[in-house]
Computed example of a mutant assay.
Amino acid sequence: MKLSLALEDAHQGPFLANDLVRASFEIRGPTFHKSPRISAKFVGTMAVSFPTQVNAASPGQITTVLFEQHKKIEYRDLQWDEDASSGESIYTTPIEFQFPDGACYCDRPQKCQLPPSLDIMEQNMRVKVSYTMTISVGRSVLGAMTKTKTVAMEIPFSCNPSTARLPRSSCVLSVPMNEKPGRYARLRDTIADQEHDDGSCPSYSPKYSPSIKVEVLLPQPAILIRGQPTPVQILVHTPTDMIESGNVYLRSVSMDLKTLVTTSTGAVPRTITQRRHGCSMAGAVKIDSELFELDSGAWGNFFVLNAKPTTESCILRMDHVVEVVTGISVGLGNDIRYAVAAFEVIVMDPPPAYEVGDAIQA
C-alpha cells in the first residue's frame, strides 16, 4: 500500500490566515475487501529546544500546539480506478482544511497571530514552527489485527503584521568629532532629539560638541517589503566652521537588519538574534555643504530577502531593527570617527499577484 499527498493547485507562495488548503490524497495497492479506517489531521506546532546544559532542569524541548483539526474520511467517499499496467487499485479523494485566523487561548480581546513557518537555530536554541497535514490509513490484515501507514506534508504559512503602531522613517546619528578615532558612539536617545512630530529632522543642535549629524531616511513609514528594494536617503548636517575647513569626508555607511525572535512558552522568555547584511558604502565622499545629500547612485537600496514578517503574539514575537553605522573623518587619514544607532522597522510579504480573469461579457 502506497500513500501520496499533494496540494491540488499550484499554490504560489505560503498560505495566509483563513486560507483554504486543498490537497489530493491517493492510495495505491491491493483492492480493499474491508473498509479501511482513514483519518486526516491538520496541526500547527511550535517547538523550542535547547541543549541540556542551557536548560538545566527543564525538558530539552517544549512543544506548543497552535491549533489542531481532525477529519474522518469514509470509504464511500473514495474514488476507485485501476492502473492498467500494474493492476493496482487506485483510490483518491480530495481533502480540505482551513487555516484559522488566530492561534492562542490567551485573554487578549483579539486573537493572536499565527506565527509564520520557520526553523532557526542561534545561540544554543532552536525554534521551529510548522504546519502539517497528516493522513493515516489502517487496514485489516488478520482478524482484528490492523496495519497502519501514514503520509504527511508540511504546509508553508506566512502572516502580515497586525501591529497598529507604525515605526518612524528616519534615524539621526551624531558623530562626535572629538572622540578617539575608531571608537563607536552609541546613540542613547532614539526619539526625543531626532525628529519633529511630522517626521522631519530638527535643526542642527549637536548632542556632542563638535559633532556631525547623519540623517538616514526610509519611506514613510519604515515598512520593508521582502524581495523588493527600499530606497535610502542619506543627509549629512555639518557645522559651518567644519565646512570652511574644506576637509570633511563621509567614509562609510552600513545598514544591517537584526531580527529578534522571542518565545514565551517556557518559564522564562528567550530570544534569538539574527543579523543580515543590508547595504553599505565605503570610500571618501567629500562634504562640501552644511546640508549634504549623498548621491543615490553611490549608495543603493536596502533589500530584505530571507527575513520572516514582523509577528506579534503571546507565544512568539518577531521584531526587526535596522542598525546603522556611519564613519566621518577630517582628512583622508585613518582617524575615522564612528556612530551607531538602531531603529525599528516592519517587514512584510509583498501583496499577492493579481490574476487577470476573463473579460465580463456585456
Rank of each mutant, 00 (worst) to 15 (best):
G266W: 06
E88S: 13
T148H: 11
A56G: 10
F42T: 00
R168D: 13
T92W: 02
A56P: 08
P59C: 11
D241W: 15
G143T: 02
L235E: 14
G283E: 07
G29A: 02
N178W: 05
P100R: 01
S329I: 01
E293N: 11
A362P: 13
R317D: 12
R28D: 03
V261G: 12
P352H: 01
R22I: 04
I272R: 06
Y184P: 06
D295V: 06
L224M: 09
H70V: 08
T146E: 07
M255R: 11
H70G: 03
Y131S: 00
S174R: 06
E68V: 04
P181D: 09
K111A: 13
K308S: 07
E312A: 12
A17D: 01
T263L: 09
G357A: 09
G297R: 12
D101P: 08
E26K: 12
M153I: 05
G227W: 00
P115K: 00
I62P: 10
M242E: 07
S39K: 15
A307V: 04
T238K: 05
D295Q: 08
V232C: 01
G327V: 05
P167A: 10
E244H: 13
A17C: 11
G138C: 03
I73C: 09
E8W: 13
S140Y: 11
A164K: 14
E74I: 08
D358N: 08
S329M: 02
A222H: 01
I73N: 09
E74N: 10
A359C: 13
L5D: 05
C201K: 14
L7F: 07
D19T: 00
F343S: 15
P309T: 00
S329N: 02
H11M: 06
I234E: 04
S158W: 00
K147R: 11
V268Q: 04
E244I: 11
L118R: 04
L332Q: 07
V261L: 14
W299K: 05
A192F: 15
M121D: 15
C159K: 00
Q12F: 10
I62F: 10
G300L: 07
L291K: 14
G29T: 03
G182P: 04
P36S: 02
P116A: 01
K207S: 13
M125E: 13
M281W: 12
E323D: 13
S205A: 15
I120Y: 06
P176Y: 05
R28F: 02
L5N: 06
Q53E: 15
L294A: 14
T259K: 01
S85C: 15
W299H: 07
F25G: 06
A362N: 10
I120S: 06
T240W: 14
T311F: 02
M153H: 06
V340S: 11
C106A: 11
L257H: 01
T31Y: 11
Y338S: 02
T262L: 02
